[in-house]
Amino acid sequence: MSTKVIEVQNLVKRFGNFVANDHLNFDVYEGEIFGFLGANGAGKTTAIRILCGLSSPTSGHAMVAGFNVKNQPERVKKNIGYMSQKFSLYEDLTISENIRFYSGIYGISRADRIERERQLLRNLELEAERDKLISSLPLGWKQKLAFSIAIFHKPRIVFLDEPTGGVDPVTRRKFWELIYEAVHNGITVFVTTHYMDEAEYCDRVSIMTEGKIAALDTPAGLKQQFDTDTMDGVFLKIARPDK
């Protein structure tokens, strides 16, 4: 864990008088699962949009997958994967059509696509369903598929924005097993979640409050630092220090 996939230095984003990101500093290393936590309105979404090349910082410096988010946002977009519960796949296209669509966007050659598609369907045991519409799949399967397609172009890092909201407890855990498998295969994962047990699955966790990173460490380190047994306890102490 020495190569940095994300480097953030003094990152600031203002909207008028409002400072959404107030001098953020952190690095994400190759092959780690980095949990990006915070209360609603703490500035997580703003930071993720900047790191994905969708929004430009007011000041400061951020490199993602080797490219500068300010000067090379298009290069950043090509080299990352992104998935959220709200935006994933096209419901009225089939599994295979979605794969073809994403392959087209990321410029994957026909030969590569056919080989990777075969692998993906075999992995998920969905060979028989390749011509089914996404809308006909159960939610848990859509999410697994959405994740597999988000890393279809073999990005160095994938951003997962609340990927497991609303799914049943078994599917939620199976989804995390896919994340582990991807990490095992060398992909770096940047993930947000409201489930505190999922924070435990991360190698390191940062917690934002009011535009700043209030804490950043391993789950064990955070629990020790805040003198509590659970990530829930850590989150509570950081997000509401007066209680």
Binding site: A39, N40, A239
Partner: peptide
């Protein structure tokens, strides 16, 4: 409480 952070949920 769906999509609401852990503290606001409490």
């Amino acid at each position: 409480t769906t999509g609401v952070d852990a503290v606001s949920r409490k």
